[in-house]
Amino acid sequence: MIQVRGIHKSFGEQHVLRGIDVDFHEGQCNLIIGLSGSGKTVLLKSVLGLHSVDQGTISFDGRVLGDMGKKEVKVLRQEMGMVFQGSALFNSLTIAENVRLPLDFFGDMTEAEKDERVRFCLERVRIDPESFSKTPAELSGGMQKRVAIARAIVLNPKYLFCDEPNSGLDPETAIVIDQLIHEITHEFGMTTVINTHDMNSVLEIGDHVILMEKGVKAWEGTMEEVMDSDDSAVVEYVFRSNLFKKLRAALKKA
C-alpha cells in the first residue's frame, strides 16, 4: 500500500497540489481521474519521487520516501515500474533491448535468464517475436504502449504507475491495454496507480477511483459507487456527457 499524507507542491507561484491524503491499495487498480490541469501527472510524479514535494509524506508499505538512505531508495526504485504517457521508449534501442535495460542494470541474472525474462514479459503483453528486434519507431502507438508495460513489469515491481495509458489509442486498443494492466495487477498483486481521462476505464477497471479537482482530492470510491454517487464533484465530472446522463437516468429508473 502507498500512503500519501498532506502533500503540497508548487511551481513558482502556482500551487498545483494543495494537501492530498490518499491510500493506493495493493492488488488493485487505483485510478486518478480529473480534468486536464487538475494535477494528476504532478501527483503521480511526486509519488514516484520525480518531483520533490514541498510538504507532506509518501510511504511505500511503511517506508517513507525522503527518510530513506541511498541504498534503500535504490531498492525501492527497483520495485517501481512506470508507463509514461508517450511510452518513453528509448529510440536508439530495439524493443527487446528496451525491456532488457532494467535487467542489465539491476538484475542478477545470467544472459540466458535475461533473454527468457524479456521474452516472457513481451509475450505477456502480446508482442510477437518478429517485433523484438524492431525499433520503437517501427511500431504502432498501441504496440509501443504494450512494450512500455513490458519494460515496466520486467523487474517484477510491487508498484506500477501509468500516466494515461490509453490516451491516443482507438477505443478497442484502449480497452485491451486497460484489461492488460488490470490482469497484470491482479496476477502479480501489484499496487497500481493510473491517471486517466477515460470514463470507460473507470467502469472497466476502477477498483478504487480518486477524483482530483484543482489540486485536491474531491471524491474517492469504487466504480460501482461512481455510478450511484450524488456527490456534486462526481456528478459534475462524470455526468457532463449526455451519454452518461442518460445512462444514469436509466439506471436510476431500473
Binding site: 531508495v73 512506470m82 518513453a88 528509448f90 529510440n91 504507475f161
Partner: peptide, 20 residues
C-alpha cells in the same frame, strides 16, 4: 537534439524511475 528529444519525450524520467 538527441538529449533534448529524450527530455521532452520523458525518456529521461523513465531512466530516473529506474534509478539510473
Amino acid at each position: 537534439s538527441t538529449l533534448g528529444t529524450m527530455r521532452v519525450t520523458e525518456q529521461m524520467d523513465a531512466l530516473r524511475v529506474m534509478g539510473i
